[in-house]
Amino acid sequence: MKKFMLFIGGLVALLILLANLGPMVILGLSVWLLYIIFKKFIKSDSAAGKVGWVILGLLVLSVTFSNMFAIVGLAAAYALYLVVKNWKNVEEDPAVDVVSEDNDPFTNFERQWAEINQ
């Protein structure tokens, strides 16, 4: 049952990730462009150049904020990662409980007998 729920959760996360893939790419490109514009702004010596870079930066910043819902896609990618990671760790409950050696009364008796004889 747990693997079925992990499968359903992974399927939903994959669909959300695919739906937000385009905005995620545009968000990444706009953040990269903001970085380049900032570097050009710092290197610019003239006031007109700095004003031009600020205006261009504000335009790219508006594109960046319009794609902020792409963070939902990033959250879906992380959820998909967690599903894949937990898929390998899920163990089925055995139908028959195996008695471990720690709970075996004869093993406990042997250990206590050995402690008494020492």
Score class of each variant (00 low, 15 high):
Ile8Asn: 04
Ser66Asp: 12
Lys50Tyr: 00
Ser44Arg: 00
Leu17Met: 09
Met5Ile: 07
Val90Phe: 00
Thr107Pro: 09
Phe109Pro: 09
Val51Gln: 14
Leu29Ala: 07
Val25Glu: 12
Arg111Leu: 15
Leu61Cys: 07
Glu110Leu: 11
Val96Trp: 09
Leu80Asn: 05
Gly57Phe: 02
Gly57Glu: 03
Ser46Cys: 03
Ser100Met: 12
Leu27Thr: 03
Ala114Lys: 04
Ile116Met: 08
Val99Cys: 02
Tyr78Thr: 11
Pro105Ala: 04
Ala48Lys: 10
Phe109Glu: 10
Asp45Phe: 10
Phe4Gly: 14
Gly73Leu: 06
Val83Phe: 02
Asn89Pro: 14
Ile16His: 02
Ser46Glu: 11
Glu91Cys: 12
Pro94Ala: 15
Gly28Met: 02
Val84Pro: 03
Asn20Glu: 13
Tyr81Glu: 05
Leu61Gly: 05
Phe38Asp: 08
Lys39Asp: 11
Phe41Asp: 02
Tyr81Pro: 01
Lys40Asp: 08
Ala48Ile: 15
Leu80Glu: 05
Phe109Cys: 04
Gly10Gln: 02
Val98Tyr: 11
Val96Pro: 09
Ala48Arg: 12
Leu18Trp: 05
Tyr78Lys: 02
Ile8Gly: 04
Asn103Glu: 13
Gly10Arg: 01
Met5Cys: 06
Ile116Lys: 08
Pro23Val: 04
Gly49Pro: 10
Ile116Tyr: 13
Tyr35Asp: 14
Lys88Ile: 14
Val96Lys: 07
Asn67Ile: 10
Ile8Gln: 00
Gly73Tyr: 04
Ile26Glu: 10
Val31Asn: 13
Leu56His: 05
Ile55His: 09
Asp104Ser: 02
Leu74Arg: 02
Asn20Cys: 11
Val63Lys: 02
Asn103Asp: 15
Arg111Met: 14
Ala48His: 13
Asn67Met: 01
Met24Gln: 06
Leu59Arg: 00
Glu92Lys: 02
Leu15Ala: 01
Val72Lys: 06
Val83Gly: 03
Gly10Ser: 00
Val72Asn: 08
Ile55Val: 11
Ala75Pro: 07
Lys40Ala: 06
Ile71Leu: 05
Lys39Phe: 08
Leu11His: 02
Gly49Ser: 11
Asp102Ser: 14
Leu82Ile: 10
Ala70Gly: 00
Ala79Pro: 01
Ser66Lys: 01
Lys3Met: 08
Trp113His: 14
Ala13Asp: 00
Thr64His: 11
Ala77Met: 13
Gln112Tyr: 13
Ala75Val: 06
Leu33Thr: 08
Glu115Gly: 14
Phe38Tyr: 11
Leu11Thr: 00
Asn89Met: 13
Val84Cys: 12
Met1Leu: 08
